[in-house]
Nucleic acid binder design. Structure first.
Lengths: 217, 217
DNA sequence: TTGTGTGAATCCCTTCACAGCG
DNA sequence: CGCTGTGAAGGGATTCACACAA
């Protein structure tokens, strides 16, 4: 039962969608916290995130029991619990590979640095970019990828490189020890055992939009 | 039955995930086509897209029957069929709202223009950006949003504006006739009836990555 | 024989409903 | 009471398995 404490990861399979909702809950909770709310009910939280009270309770119950019956959840406590579940209790060392438009958009995006993701290295292959300073990082030659990834113990690689280059770059990053990959290229990467990939594909989003629009016409 | 023809949209509910897979299939098919393949089996297509033969056949069977038993699918025909299903047989008029980093990344991204999405207007509120030319578009003052959206009959708005501004801008775009929205702000938009929203949220992707990494440690 | 199209079976996720605790 | 936590029910989505067509 472990009242109020997170259960240790039993070998239960957690669905991707539940995890994505937890991430939404976390954002909503942080907003509530900033707004000075002490407690929140599953109904309120669900409403803010576009889901139901039952869904919220079920999602949380996969990891423990964090609420008080009759009262709801203490916002601060739940924030800590969800951060812990999502693995956000420590910063993650990220390398940004590709300093083009997408890369720079990501780098500037305050969401990253202020949310526990430390961009410890930026790589590009364009000689005119190598050596430029972004914030207090310097753009490095992608030729040095392996060495730098190993030395800085990079855990996550964000791949914002052209589709032709992406598989090769990923292979190299993984061999140097990267275990998580965020891929912006529209291509299914072949990954070694033990490496997790998430794809971000804007064309899919747009095409599922046009599908919906076409239907409702 | 309707051999080789797309069935008219019966009121069957099509899952979001099936649609997303169709978009993947389309990309794989186009690659096969460029590589000169005439036909493809559900197994091959599934493998390229990280799913199974049965899944491919089921997905396609939601919309008609496009293959030949014992032979597979003709690549060219299936491309046309899937484009039709996804609503890609005509270009869509898109407005890009917000000409910051994300906006420029999207605009440059060749995927858009070359895939049936016409960026017919770009808006920003920064006076130093208004009037700049991007390609053969000029950045317009967001104050003119309603007029321009109406005049150019914009159908889809890509919202790449700060989170504080996004709900207001979306409301205005929808009142002017926009029916589809791609939202980059980490916020659940309240949308009027008949408008479809897709959210793109990089933090969710990263956090589901850290969840996975945390588990496998 | 090959590989599609599709009912049936299975699995997983969401929703329901309520016991139980504060 | 109010609201959580959770078994049970319900509903979708995926997988299976096979009849059938080329």
């Amino acid at each position: 039962m472990t009242q109020g404490r997170r259960q240790e990861p039993v070998s239960k399979k957690i669905s991707e969608s539940a995890v994505r909702r937890l991430s939404l809950y976390l954002r909503a909770l942080e907003e509530l916290d900033r707004a000075g709310h002490e407690t929140v009910s599953s109904g309120q939280l669900g409403f803010k995130c576009g889901t139901t009270a039952a869904q919220v309770r079920k999602d949380l119950s996969l990891f423990g029991s964090f609420g008080k019956r009759g009262l709801g959840y203490r916002v601060e406590e739940l924030i800590l619990a969800v951060r812990d579940i999502l693995g956000l209790t420590r910063p993650w060392r990220v390398a940004l590979i590709g300093a083009g438009r997408i890369g720079s958009a990501l780098f500037e995006y305050t969401g990253l640095g202020h949310r526990g993701f430390e961009v410890v290295a930026i790589f590009d292959c364009d000689p005119s970019k190598i050596g430029q300073e972004w914030g207090d990082s310097i753009i490095l030659d992608v030729a040095e990828l392996e060495r730098v990834v190993r030395e800085l113990d990079v855990e996550i690689a964000i791949l914002a490189v052209p589709v032709e280059a992406v598989q090769g770059v990923m292979d190299r990053a993984c061999r140097a020890g990267v275990r998580g990959v965020l891929n912006f290229a529209p291509l299914r990467l072949k990954v070694p055992e033990g490496v997790t990939v998430k794809d971000v594909n804007l064309v899919i989003e747009l095409e599922s939009l046009t599908f919906a629009l076409r239907q409702s016409r």
